[in-house]
Amino acid sequence: MPVKAIRPDYHGEHRDARANFGGAILVYIDWDFHRWFCTPKTFPLPPDMPFGALIEAVIPEGFGQHPQFSEIDWGSVEWTLDHEPFTPDMGRGIEEQGFGHKCILRFSTPGLTENI
């Protein structure tokens, strides 16, 4: 039973359906183990945005404030998309390579896992 209600036909509209974000999809991004940023962050992104643009514009905007950010070697970063290992293609759009609405992108930076 999807809800206990006085009316058997009770229904809740999906408030955060993809159609409500003006063409963008929501992508949640977290820099693993770097709790200087207390939570994963939410980004509304164009689904055809190339992954390379995500690294150049979106991630620095969300995570560039960390003192170690400039030390990240992007070639050795380990990515997961929806908690599965993921190898990004810099030139292709994010939706094309599996990003859906409300997906989770995590990156970890071995060697840079200090606790601040």
Partner: peptide
Amino acid sequence: TAGLPQLCQTCQIPMFFTNVDEGKPTEI
């Protein structure tokens, strides 16, 4: 901090809780 956090759909709290059950207090 720049940007906006991810929230839990039920409690609506920013997703700051970490995996203390498995001894990983920096993993969301």
